[in-house]
Design a protein around this nucleic acid. Structure first.
Lengths: 196, 196
DNA sequence: CCTACCGATCGGTAGG
DNA sequence: CCTACCGATCGGTAGG
């Protein structure tokens, strides 16, 4: 096994451990010592791989985006009902992966503070999500597939806000909250065509 | 000025300072020393008034509820469209008080963690909000004022989730987000009668 | 209400 | 990648 490969695997272990700890304690609440312990090394050893606490956070966010091949596909899907199906597929995927949702929600909430190291990341993330949704609703509107009086920009904002809010409710009580059904129903209520 | 009065005023100062710091740093991110400094005493002095960090948090949440005479009024309003007007009045009031919304959102997000000292408080808070909304939609449904096929329980969950999600978006970008308009439009879309 | 202190924990560095 | 350490900060206590 080459030294480079070993190093890469070690980094992956550390990132996975960091995601676990961020999920439980947020960024500020987590310590390099706790993350290092779960990756079986000392906190000084961790710093050998990631030069600072912030650099590790950046690596975690970067890998999360890299994993999101779904988002990649989203970018290349032409605006229309198909995009809504893509959104729903992501929600369904999330339903089977509460850990990632939990980590993301935890960090996003913390990063509302302007001086949080992930603030810029999430600002960009949300803007892209909103723009994407707005373009979709606009295309639907031009084809007459959006109910009369529904404004694409407001529909986009409402959709993203609903998605976020539902994740929080779902994380608090997964048994009682039908995240996928609620979003599907909400979208269907905006459309003049069936969503199936 | 009586000693008791002085003590009560001092406590109010400390609680106000705590709300400020919680808003900026959350509960775990804030220190008794910083809160104390803003209330013009030492952190040991603060502990003279509130025996622990958790006791101060409890006092902050308690006072926030006490201030919410609006919620009190909500409890005594019979289910129906009038309750929706009450909800919208709260949203409008919040629009003029970003500080309190910010503090609440920050704490609520942090308290998703089950071992957070405010976890039980927010669980109760959300359950009450959801139950209240569900009873309202149910009453509307029985009078035929809810659109066909709208399920009161799902409408309540969706409404609370949307409200929460919009607050986060609004806090991040107050200029671009029409919180009140979005909620009003969403509600109107569920009804068969005008919301005015 | 303060001064003075405690034990614990933090991110990061030195030096190997 | 570790041991050993630094300066800073934390919540809480003692004792007045």
């Amino acid at each position: 096994m080459s030294g480079y490969l070993k190093g890469r695997l070690r980094r992956e272990d550390i990132i996975a451990a960091a995601m676990d700890v961020y999920r439980e304690a947020g960024y500020h609440g987590s310590s390099l010592r706790e993350i290092a312990k779960r990756a079986n090394l000392t906190h000084a050893g961790l710093i050998y791989y990631f030069p600072s606490k912030e650099a590790l956070l950046a690596a975690v966010l970067e890998r999360r985006d890299a994993e999101d091949t779904e988002r990649e596909k989203l970018d290349t899907t032409p605006p229309g009902v198909e995009v809504l199906h893509h959104f729903l597929a992501i929600v369904e995927h999330n339903t089977r992966n509460p850990g990632v949702v939990d980590m993301y929600t935890r960090l996003a909430a913390e990063a509302v503070a302007v001086d949080h190291p992930a603030h810029a990341y999430f600002e960009r993330h949300y803007r892209m999500a909103r723009d994407n949704a707005e373009a979709t609703f606009r295309a639907l509107s031009e084809r007459g597939e959006l109910r009369t009086g529904v404004d694409p920009a407001m529909a986009a904002l409402t959709f993203i806000a609903l998605w976020d809010g539902l994740q929080v409710q779902w994380l608090t009580n997964q048994a009682e909250v039908d995240m996928l059904g609620s979003i599907r129903t909400h979208l269907q209520n905006l459309l003049t065509v069936p969503l199936d």
